[in-house]
């Protein structure tokens, strides 16, 4: 089955699922797990289509975090897609900026901007830069791409919320390889020192980085012990289990006195067999044929 290289793939329709979930009260959402799974599947398809259209980008880590962000944006966080900067929102700080195809797809699914814009990813004049630029696209909250900086920013926001006695929570997604950056551990100290229990860090622990296995490149284990030693509340969770993620976020929300980290076991490239657990798919775009195959696999799930 040859696929023409210039074929334009269509971004899937999120509305039937995203709209239904977002209009449901939180209590009801718990009973909508299959809809979350379908939404995550469509988000995966969208980000792959966007990356293929761009001809470059980072599918591996985008796919591994897809379920996490689906739960975060459509279950856990207080969001306002009609007004991205609404003062009562919870903040999401993407620290591993290269996985922005996922963030953009989640934003599009939630209605921050038209899903069709995903096809402009990485193109000249696009709001969807290769790494997020919040001055172009406010819902990204920050501009990032140089790793290791997000948690510090999250802490600063959380400190401001504490000063103003506001209930907003701050979430920060980091990659496992990213934890090799020294600044992350400076920030880990700060969150604990200032008792920022309104901070929830999330580690996408997919075990792979560009040069290979994290433990071969520069080991970070034992990660849970490290965070505990830094006085954090640690929750280990399967990063592809929607219900477990809901529980984990709920637990983090109710924990007082310490910041919480969700260490999410994930599979890099999750959902596409030939991308799963392959470091090569960290930062490589599928061609049209590979995309068609990936979409068929996702459709079959």
């Amino acid at each position: 089955m040859a696929v023409k290289e210039d074929k334009v793939f269509e971004i899937p329709d999120f509305k039937p699922f995203s709209g239904e979930i977002l209009s449901a009260p939180k209590g009801i959402r718990r009973k909508m797990i299959p809809r979350y799974e379908e939404l995550a599947r469509r988000i995966r398809k969208a980000l792959l289509i966007a990356i293929q259209g761009a001809g470059s980008g980072h599918p591996g880590g985008s796919l591994s975090s897809a379920d996490i962000l689906t739960v975060l944006f459509f279950y856990e966080m207080k969001i306002n897609p009609a007004n991205a900067c609404s003062p009562d929102r919870d903040y999401f700080i993407l620290s591993k900026g290269h996985t922005c195809p996922l963030l953009y797809s989640v934003h599009a699914a939630a209605g921050y901007f038209p899903p069709g814009d995903l096809l402009t990813l990485r193109k000249f004049g696009s709001l969807l830069q290769g790494h997020p630029d919040w001055k172009k696209l406010e819902c990204c909250e920050i501009s990032c791409g140089s790793l290791g900086q997000g948690l510090s920013i999250a802490n600063g926001i959380a400190m401001a919320m504490k000063m103003d006695e506001k209930p907003n929570r701050v979430y920060c997604l980091m990659g496992d390889g990213e934890l090799q950056e020294g600044q992350v551990w400076e920030a880990v100290m700060t969150s604990a020192h200032y008792k920022l229990d309104n901070v929830c860090a999330i580690v996408d622990y997919n075990n792979l980085q560009i040069d290979g296995f994290v433990e071969d490149v520069m080991g970070i284990a034992p990660l849970d012990d490290k965070f505990r030693a830094f006085s954090w509340n640690v929750i280990k969770v399967n990063g592809h289990d929607i219900e477990a993620l809901m529980d984990a976020f709920e637990s983090a929300r109710s924990f007082r006195g310490k910041p919480t980290v969700l260490i999410c076991s994930t599979v890099k490239g999750k959902g596409v067999s030939f991308m799963e657990n392959k470091a090569d798919w960290h930062g490589k775009a599928p061609d049209a044929e590979q995309l068609a195959l990936a979409l068929r696999e996702l459709d079959a799930q």
Partner: peptide, 18 residues
């Protein structure tokens, strides 16, 4: 912020964000 200039700068950005 302790002897941690990089984190201090990021934290400041977060405070400014808010």
């Amino acid at each position: 912020m302790g002897i941690a200039e990089q984190d201090m700068m990021g934290t400041a950005a977060g405070l400014a964000k808010a």
